[in-house]
Simulated assay, not measured.
Amino acid sequence: MTAPAINGTKYPQPVEALLPAAREIVKELGEVPARNELMRRFRIGAPKAQELRDRLIAEKAREIVLRDRTQRADTEPAVDLWDYAEPIGPDPLPAPVVPESVPLVEPVLTPVVAPVVAEPVEQVAPVSHPGTPAPLGPPPALNRNERRALRAQAAHDALMQGQTRRVREWTAKAAEARQLRRLLMDPDIQAVRLMRQRARWTAMAWSALLFALAFTMVNVQRFAAGHAEAWSPTWLVAWLVDPAFSILLVGLLIARGQLSAVGRSVHQRTVRRVEYALLASTAAMNVMPTLAEGYPGGWREQAMQVLLHLLIPGLAFAAALVITLIQDHFADAIASITEGEDAR
Rank of each mutant, 00 (worst) to 15 (best):
T2L: 12
P4F: 08
I6A: 10
P12W: 13
E24P: 00
K27C: 00
G30A: 11
G30F: 11
M39T: 09
R40N: 10
I44E: 01
K48P: 00
R53V: 04
A58S: 09
E59C: 00
I64T: 10
V65T: 07
T70S: 06
A73Q: 13
A73T: 03
T75D: 10
V79F: 15
Y84R: 15
A85H: 12
P87Y: 02
P87T: 03
P92T: 07
A95C: 00
V98F: 10
V102E: 11
L104G: 09
V105P: 02
V112Y: 15
E119F: 03
P120G: 09
E122Q: 13
P126E: 01
P130M: 05
G131E: 06
G137M: 02
G137E: 03
T164D: 04
K173R: 15
E176Q: 14
A177L: 14
M185H: 11
P187E: 12
I189V: 13
A191I: 03
R193V: 09
M195T: 07
Q197Y: 10
S207Q: 10
F211L: 14
L213K: 05
V220R: 08
W231K: 04
W239G: 15
L240V: 07
V241P: 13
G251H: 05
L252C: 02
A255F: 13
Q258H: 09
L259Y: 12
G263I: 06
R264H: 06
H267N: 05
R269P: 02
V287K: 05
T290S: 14
G297A: 09
L311I: 05
L311M: 06
A320C: 08
L321G: 03
V322S: 10
T324H: 14
I326A: 14
S336L: 14
T338L: 15
T338K: 15
R344D: 14
